[in-house]
Design a protein around this nucleic acid. Sequence first.
DNA 1: TTATAAATGCACTTCCGTTGCATTGTATTT
DNA 2: AAATACAATGCAACGGAAGTGCATTTATAA
Lengths: 138, 138
Amino acid sequence: MQTIEQLLESKNIRVTAMRLLIYKFLAEKQVAVTLSDIENAFDKADRTTLYRTVKTFEESTIVHQIDDGTGITKYALCEKGCNCDIETDLHLHFHCNNCNETVCLTEHKIPQIKVPNGFISEDINLVVKGVCDKCSGL
Amino acid sequence: MQTIEQLLESKNIRVTAMRLLIYKFLAEKQVAVTLSDIENAFDKADRTTLYRTVKTFEESTIVHQIDDGTGITKYALCEKGCNCDIETDLHLHFHCNNCNETVCLTEHKIPQIKVPNGFISEDINLVVKGVCDKCSGL
DNA sequence: TTATAAATGCACTTCCGTTGCATTGTATTT
DNA sequence: AAATACAATGCAACGGAAGTGCATTTATAA
Ligand SMILES: [Mn+2]
Ligand SMILES: [Mn+2]
Ligand SMILES: [Zn+2]
Ligand SMILES: [Zn+2]
């Protein structure tokens, strides 16, 4: 088990206080977060720093971006061994219409999707919307 | 075969010049269009009118909205017999990373997606990204 | 024709993402 | 240790797209 510091260093990302804090924040969250979420969690830090930190993480396959259809970009930590950079992360995402939260369903891979002749599939974004387990009470 | 006028009247939407023009514009386009696309096609008309027209169409299941991940909302005519309003339109969308166009693949329905226990699926958004038939040359 | 309501146009706002640039902090070299 | 070089952070501003309030025009109905 490697530390966060080791992870960052392995990706050639300098270890700073902010980056450690933001990483920990993402790690303890069970849901995808928006930039505003991070902003609210770190009042003292500037929006831009948070934005660039997340972007840095994204470029190094530490987090992946999620477009859940709300119009607001969300972020979540990549699983270890995730290959977002070379091929798309094929797990699906679930957006709850009730609590408005979005989660990675990393266990649920996206099935093979057929496209018409002449079309070349390179990436797939699949978002299921409905009611999450916390809200459904099932 | 019903006329556009008849279609609008059947949905209790008043027939206006703008609405007929915008409908025809959408009908002759083979790809999903942005509000800016419509704006460029109708210089004289105001953005707000176009915006509200499309929204009116959307509320009456004449067009459906497409979130292809570009961050810009796109619109396309619904097929006849489409049930966007009561259940989600289950066809998938394809976004070309080369020409940046998005098309409805109405023939390609979204397969059944399994979600974990406790989750209730109500709607699915599936966007395949890659190279379209025009750009691939295949 | 007049009264009523909807459609359109104009101005303005908000929200999110993004960038330029100055400043601070860190690491490396001399 | 001091000087240097470069990256990280903070502040301010911008831009695009979606959305809203209100006045005006246009269509429908009485
Ligand atoms: Mn995910
Ligand atoms: Mn479609
Ligand atoms: Zn929920
Ligand atoms: Zn193309």
